[in-house]
Amino acid sequence: MHVGVAWFLGVSAVLFGIGLYGVFTRRSPIILLLSVEIMLNGSNLALISVARYWGEQSGQVFALVVMAVAASEVVVGLGLVVAMARRRADLDVDSLTGLRN
């Protein structure tokens, strides 16, 4: 059975949408970081499927690069979360209102 590239792009769009929905609705910074990861992985799926479609390698290499970059981003994000948790126990972005007019 042949599955066209459009299906892969559809799944990648769904993943991206799930991640975006999570960013807008969830409150815990850790879940927010997770949601961003889902968005990036949706993009990765799109890159890989398109690379396959064009018979090209650069998209695949790009996906590998994205994984490395995403990992370093999460490292910094988790570092900040840990630093905040040390100062105060609850982790909820709605309570992060020190910076408001």
Binding site: F16, L32, L33, V36, F62, V66, G77, L80, V93, L96
Partner: peptide, 20 residues
């Protein structure tokens, strides 16, 4: 932390646009 989360969402948008 706010900058990181919003900035990462921005980067994800750019990446998805690049993929498309």
């Amino acid at each position: 932390l706010k900058y990181l989360i919003v900035g990462s969402v921005g980067a994800a948008f750019l990446l998805y646009g690049a993929a498309l």
